[in-house]
Design a binder for these strands. Structure first.
Lengths: 153, 153
DNA sequence: TATTGTTATACTCTATAACTATA
DNA sequence: TATAGTTATAGAGTATAACAATA
């Protein structure tokens, strides 16, 4: 089922289209998040914390697929916004745990609604089974990511 | 078909997974491109030029879904690397046309091979029909992008 | 020695908006 | 006035690598 969007076999790469769509979706989402003074990466972190409250930064970095340094920076920002708390681990003076503040926790559903709205703009025209397919396929790739190289430094 | 990756309805967003996977794929690809001294965005531009040689920067920016300013910067870099040429349009002194140099053109298949290799790492475990589905769905979204907001400034 | 988290540094990618030259 | 392209500025997002503290 070739279309005018695919003029050459040489340049038909899934990674390319993935990046193209992801950039557009994330950019539109960033605009929506501006109203709540949250960035996309901050949202991703809060979303993860919402699920696994409380968690060590190192574990979070692995779940998010980014470095510990990146987590440090995001958390610094979210601390300043009173969205998360950082606590020392009494059992290991090197370790910490992160958790959402009540304020942060209550914001997540609002952000989630914006994400739903953003999703709708980009994916609602797809048939339901196509949408589900896309979701399953993406998660399938995530499950496999151990096989490939994501920075964990 | 719920899995441990989806612990909450509240946080099941396609945009989230798209970004997660896209980041991982692009990062791994960036590492591969380093050996040719090309970045991912430069590759995207060269890929587009490969298909529509020669083209105006403004048209290219629309095809790529980025601003004209972004194209200017990428082209500046690719000029320095002798990958593209920038020519004045004799019919309109404001306009230009961009094209790949012979060197740039000959590099594209090499980069394409790296992209294939990268795709393989992330998508080969998927059944063929799932992979095709993913590609079609992504292109489907791109076709619709006129409906949503991509910066064109 | 290994691990946890931080920090310094440096990119890439991209936008916004003002600007210049031309139409 | 409108359009083509440039530029100045800024910020998000992220990595790498060295570091300090602790285990």
């Amino acid at each position: 089922m070739s279309t005018s969007i695919e003029p050459s076999q040489l340049t038909a790469h899934l990674g390319y289209w993935l990046r193209y769509v992801s950039n557009a979706v994330s950019h539109a989402f960033a605009r929506k998040l501006e109203s709540r003074d949250v960035t996309v990466a901050e949202w991703a972190l809060m979303r993860q914390l919402y699920e696994t409250d409380a968690i060590a930064p190192s574990a979070l970095s692995q779940q998010m697929g980014v470095t510990r340094g990146a987590v440090t920076k995001l958390v610094d920002r979210l601390l300043a916004k009173d969205m998360v708390v950082r606590e020392d681990n009494p059992n290991d003076a090197r370790a910490q745990t992160l958790a959402l503040t009540p304020q942060g926790r209550s914001l997540v559903p609002e952000l989630s609604a914006l994400a739903d709205q953003n999703d709708a703009e980009f994916f609602n025209h797809l048939a339901v089974d196509k949408r589900n397919h896309l979701e399953e396929t993406l998660k399938d790739i995530v499950r496999r990511r151990g096989l490939t190289s994501i920075p964990l430094s």
